[in-house]
């Protein structure tokens, strides 16, 4: 049994949060540079160049890439051969979130949904747990902004809607979103599960590195079809017109009820701040 102390967890979370806020990961930078080669719109290219320049400034001056430093979202894989000393994993992650957002001079964006009063320390983090074998604790983090989250949608479709129905719903979601979610976007799609599970796997799909190919050939094909259709909409970078509206489309599917076909579309902005650590 491996012992992991609570402050190991909170310190790892502080590092994840402060690093992701000002350092765009390699997969995102590469994908933005690829977009520059594809984009034919002048204003689209101008926007992409400014986004890349912004990433350079953020990294060299250790400034947040975006003022919306997000809600702190975590996917945690807990091995069966570990024990946590000093409290629960949830406490460790929330402590790290509290300290990380303070230390990094990041914006605290959690508030009461009705009074709208700011909680003040960006807690509670949103944490999804999975239990695995082995003696590792893997913590994956994303700073999820509000603008792209607000354009995300979920639908309980009919089984008869089929693959075409899924494709149409994803493209329609991006049509409706237009310039609002800060395109070019990463689109996470959850197919199956039930009402809440489809949304969780759509979020999880965003954590896959851009440029990786879905090992399920049929899903890879659907991703490609949706990607092409979204880029034909014409929205372009920041919605000023262009052919780069999607950076990537990622799908996860899970079994669902024989009566259902849940589908969730989680949109992520181009400032896709994510990272992970294994303890």
């Amino acid at each position: 049994m491996k012992i992991i102390k609570l402050d190991q967890i909170s310190n790892a979370v502080i590092d994840l949060i402060t690093h992701a806020a000002s350092n765009l990961s390699e997969d995102v930078i590469k994908s933005l540079n690829n977009s520059l080669d594809i984009e034919i719109s002048e204003s689209g290219k101008s926007v992409l160049n400014k986004i890349i320049k912004n990433a350079e400034i953020a990294k060299s001056e250790d400034r947040p890439l975006c003022q919306d430093t997000g809600l702190a979202v975590f996917f945690v894989e807990i091995g069966s051969d570990i024990a946590i000393e000093g409290g629960t994993i949830t406490e460790g992650i929330n402590e790290g979130t509290r300290k990380g957002y303070e230390k990094g001079y990041l914006r605290k964006s959690t508030c009461d949904p009705l009074t709208r009063k700011n909680i003040g320390d960006n807690t509670p983090a949103i944490i999804h747990y999975e239990f695995t074998g082995g003696d590792k604790l893997k913590i994956s983090y994303a700073a999820k902004g509000g603008g792209s989250e607000n354009m995300s949608r979920i639908k309980m479709m009919k089984p008869s809607d089929g693959i075409q129905g899924i494709i149409d719903f994803a493209v329609e979601t991006m049509e409706i979103a237009g310039p609002n979610p800060c395109p070019p976007n990463i689109i996470g799609i959850g197919i199956g599960g039930n009402f809440e599970r489809s949304a969780i796997i759509a979020k999880k799909a965003l954590f896959r590195n851009i440029g990786t190919i879905n090992p399920d050939k049929e899903l890879a094909q659907i991703e490609q079809t949706i990607y092409n259709k979204i880029n034909k909409i014409g929205t372009g970078p920041m919605g000023f017109g262009g052919v780069c509206t999607a950076l990537a489309v990622h799908i996860i599917k899970e079994p669902c009820h024989i009566a259902s076909m849940p589908i969730a579309i989680n949109i992520e902005c181009h400032s896709h701040r994510h990272g992970s650590v294994v303890l």
Binding site: G178, G234, G241
Partner: peptide, 15 residues
Amino acid sequence: DLYNEGKLKFAGKFK
């Protein structure tokens, strides 16, 4: 409206 005009101009242009 740039959003409408830009979208119209580039709709279907992705290859």
